[in-house]
Design a protein around this nucleic acid. Sequence first.
RNA 1: GGUCUGGUAGCUCAGUUGGAUAGAGCAUCAGCCUUCUAAGCUGAGGGUCAUUGGUUCGAAUCCAAUCCAGAUCACCA
Length: 591
Amino acid sequence: MSILNSLQKSTIESLQVLYHQTFSEKDFQVNQTKPEFEGDYTVVMFSLVKSLKLSPEVIGNQLGEHLIKTYPEIFSAYNIIKGFLNLTIADDYWMNFLQQHYNDICFGKQAMNNKKVMVEYSSPNTNKPLHLGHLRNNFLGWSVAEILGANGNTVLKSCIVNDRGIHICKSMIAWQLFGNGDTPQSTGIKGDHFVGDFYVKFNDEYKKQVKELVANGMAEPEAEKEAPIMKATQQMLQDWEAGKPDVIELWKKMNGWVYEGFDVTYKRIGSDFDKMYYESNTYLLGKDIVQQGLEKNIFIRKEDGSVWIDLTADGLDEKLVLRKDGTSVYITQDIGLAQQKYDEYKIDKSIHVIGDEQNYHMKVLQLICKKMGLPYADDIHHLSYGMVELPTGKMKSREGTVVDADDLVDEMEKEAAAKTEELGKVKDFSEDELKALYHTIGLGALKFYLLRVDPKKKMIFNPEESIDFHGFTGPFIQFNHARISSVLRKNPINNDHTTGNSFLPLEKELIVLLEKYPSVIKQAGDELNPSAIAIYVYTIAKTFSSFYTEHSIANAESEEKKQLRLKLANMTAIVIKSGMQLLGINVPDRM
RNA sequence: GGUCUGGUAGCUCAGUUGGAUAGAGCAUCAGCCUUCUAAGCUGAGGGUCAUUGGUUCGAAUCCAAUCCAGAUCACCA
């Protein structure tokens, strides 16, 4: 049981004994004691005043007295300031805790429950390479999956690839027109970038054609429809849907190039999936559900044949679910895919990591599933995250302001290499070891940068300023892990129970923090929020760093003190490593 | 216009669901490496928590209104 739970429980029991009234954890608040006061945890008395009809000071005194008398193994002292009962936790309690967990690599993780969760993330389009926004999505999705696993869930990572549609045809057309038969192999360009370049080429040509038509007197909206390259693209989409062999062949070939490129990037950034879904296989799903909905009168067919759902009573709008030609739209596929996931895996919860620009869409999806009475409707959860913006505003591919994922990772690794060389602490590393280290540090900095911010909030990335390696960053945390590793390499730990020590303030601070790790994992899981982990791990590293500078471990005042500090350091290293792992970040033993 | 987010130090962000004098990092300034890794540590300056009301022992946090910024409301995905 956590110290917080023990504290709540003993408080409730004491209140029962003292006042013959039954309280629950929600009836009073427990916080960590502010550093300017004496004590470790504080119970706030004010909320008890009304029901007990006693002053906060009186309750605090009686409660404090009773607690230390009844639970001497937990509490050693108390004091009251205003309505705050500050409790000091017994040193023995901490000592036992440390002895029990200092070498426990599973500390903080929950036993398996029977829940199965699917986390869908990444969702790339096969017409362009991944960019900074995808990175936030990928890191979030992967980390959330990991965190849910640490909370005892069985987790499936999935990915829906948008591999068909008009945007894919655009790069196909452009390649036919301007490609001269070039391939990634012949040009030496990574497949996803190669195809992305043709997508850009399409837009350039399209703009040019529209401009020409307008110059010849056509109205702009009409010109946008009539541009030959656009008409060709639309024709190609129809051919694709009709299964025309040469179009299908081209489509397969170009998507194949993109996947080769994606594989490299995914491997590099540490994304992986248990299940891939392809829109080309799912885009027809959901139609039968629409049919059922029509029969139940949840959907309505308009005169032109299109099918709609009226959500105005729920504060939303009317939403189209089938076009008049009978083809399905995005939301229809999503309903179908949700059904398929449920049928296939019997998942208890389905988490969709999707940007907040699609909040409305996801709301509609959920509402439709609910109205259809689908059993999983309430278990669909949209993990909505804010866009990554530049100081100048949104990233726009048309204006060439998109920060490319591959380029960014390259830069981060280069930066890591430069810093490492400058410091010259790993001169004995082999070429391969150095490469691995640069990757660990560079990617660690990037992941931490994107994960330390609350997912819900949009964030600003300034490409002018490179991502920092000092302060509240991944490398700072990695550095502290390396420092601890270094100390532990040179000083063996004795497993005997360490006794007879009281804690210095920084030692106490560290152990109180370590004890909280399980609750942080739980919070991060409940909130689907990796930033809770990031902030926590940083706080641990920072506290350790102060402790490390202030007190010598190897040359402690006594052998007992040395053992205590070694155990503290060991547990700190384990928690840092474990927490960073939940973020998808590795920690080196040397850097 | 409707709906939904958000507004905290010069900048980027925290703030444990209502608790004690609102915290970090970056940037600025001043110190600290003959001892375990200085990607570090210590300290200083920097705030009308967008504004105004309300709720109560107590509000950055809850409620209302206003201002500002963004997203969305497609027979696009």
